[in-house]
Amino acid sequence: MEEAPQRVELPAAFEDVEVDALVHLIADMMDRLMAHNDRIPLSPEALTRFHSRSAPGISVLDYLKRVVRFTKVERVCLLITLHYIDQICARAPLFTLTSLTCHRFVITAITIASKTFCDVFSVNAVYAKVGGIPVDELNMLEREFLRMIDWNLTCTREVLQEYYVNLVRTHSMGTYYIAARESSSGISSDSDTDWEAGGSQPDSPMAESTTTEPSTILVDTATLSPEPPRLPTLEQNMAFAAFRQSSQGPMEPG
């Protein structure tokens, strides 16, 4: 008879959690999102600069561990990546986090978050090398990311805390738990603990989708103004044709 996996208690506040545990939580959520969204057929108008022609050979967990190891990324920069996913997916509904987009999205999000929240951060050449893509491509992805998110790069500390709590609550293996759950939602929002730069932010609970619609994490779409639907551009049609022809070939994260 197999023994039940040992459960690990985590601190109530995300600022106190070990980075390794946070990486496992985020990778678990992204794996589930990708498994869901990979079932959605790709259309030309949904093709973005974040798409690889085939899924990279490195798992999201190992990729995140690599980024953390070589860039010393802070907890807030890891957590806000989930907020960025929700914001972009709500504004551009055709974009989904899949096995073809996740790695490029992650390294771009962490690059931008580090510049936004950290007093000390690396230059793009370092993030590009760690992420396995050319620096010119990271620069291009950074510009596209900022356009897609409309430069809304911050959120409240409470929103990040709710992402953290829900990552623990929905972890697929049930390995982690927060014993003092009630204290995690009652932490005050004084100015010295607030990540907000201005404006209200969504705080609805995380929901697990069971349909074939693109799945996000935690977002109140009523607070956002989605982009109007656009026909595929000539570039997208050409890229989609090339993608269809060469999708069987090996592809690195970049």
Rank of each mutant, 00 (worst) to 15 (best):
Met1Trp: 08
Glu3Thr: 13
Glu3Tyr: 05
Glu3Phe: 07
Pro5Trp: 03
Val8Asp: 08
Glu9Cys: 06
Glu9Val: 06
Leu10Phe: 04
Leu10Cys: 09
Pro11Phe: 04
Phe14Ala: 01
Glu15Lys: 15
Glu15Gly: 02
Leu22Val: 04
Val23Asn: 03
Leu25Glu: 00
Met29Ala: 11
Met30Thr: 07
Asp31Gly: 07
Asp31Arg: 04
Leu33Phe: 03
Ala35Val: 15
Asn37Glu: 03
Asp38Tyr: 09
Leu42Gln: 09
Leu42Thr: 04
Pro44Phe: 06
Glu45His: 12
Ala46Ser: 11
Thr48Pro: 02
Ser52Asn: 13
Pro56Lys: 15
Ile58Trp: 03
Leu61Thr: 13
Asp62Pro: 10
Lys65Ser: 02
Val68Met: 10
Thr71Arg: 08
Thr81Phe: 01
Leu82Asn: 02
His83Tyr: 11
Gln87Met: 15
Ile88Lys: 06
Ile88Phe: 08
Ala90Phe: 02
Ala92Lys: 15
Pro93Arg: 05
Thr96Ile: 08
Ser99Val: 05
Arg104Ala: 09
Phe105Arg: 06
Val106Tyr: 02
Ile107Asn: 01
Thr108Phe: 01
Thr108Gln: 00
Ile112Gln: 04
Ile112Gly: 01
Thr116Lys: 11
Asp119Gln: 11
Phe121Glu: 03
Phe121Thr: 05
Ser122Gly: 07
Ser122Gln: 14
Val123Pro: 15
Asn124Thr: 07
Val126Pro: 00
Val126Ile: 12
Ala128Pro: 04
Val130Cys: 12
Val130Thr: 06
Gly131Phe: 03
Ile133His: 04
Asp136Glu: 07
Glu137Trp: 10
Leu141Arg: 00
Glu144Tyr: 08
Phe145Leu: 03
Phe145Ala: 02
Arg147Asp: 13
Arg147Lys: 09
Ile149Glu: 06
Trp151Arg: 12
Asn152Phe: 11
Asn152Pro: 00
Leu153Glu: 03
Leu153Tyr: 10
Thr154Gly: 05
Cys155Ser: 12
Val159Met: 05
Gln161Asn: 03
Tyr163Cys: 04
Val165Ala: 06
Val168Lys: 00
Arg169Gln: 12
His171Ile: 15
Ile178Tyr: 00
Ile178Ala: 00
Ile178Leu: 03
Ala180His: 04
Arg181Val: 01
Arg181Met: 09
Arg181His: 06
Glu182Leu: 02
Glu182Met: 01
Ser184Ala: 08
Ser184Arg: 02
Gly186Ser: 12
Asp194Glu: 15
Trp195Asp: 05
Ser200Gln: 14
Gln201Ile: 10
Ser204Leu: 14
Ser209Leu: 14
Ser209Tyr: 13
Thr210Tyr: 10
Thr211Gln: 07
Thr212Val: 08
Ser215Glu: 15
Thr216Arg: 14
Thr216Met: 08
Leu218Asp: 01
Leu218Phe: 07
Val219Ile: 14
Asp220Leu: 06
Leu224Tyr: 11
Glu227Cys: 12
Pro229Lys: 01
Asn237Phe: 07
Asn237Ser: 10
Met238Phe: 12
Met238Gly: 05
Phe240Thr: 02
Gln245Ala: 14
Gln248Ser: 15
Pro250His: 00
Glu252Gly: 13
Gly254Gln: 09
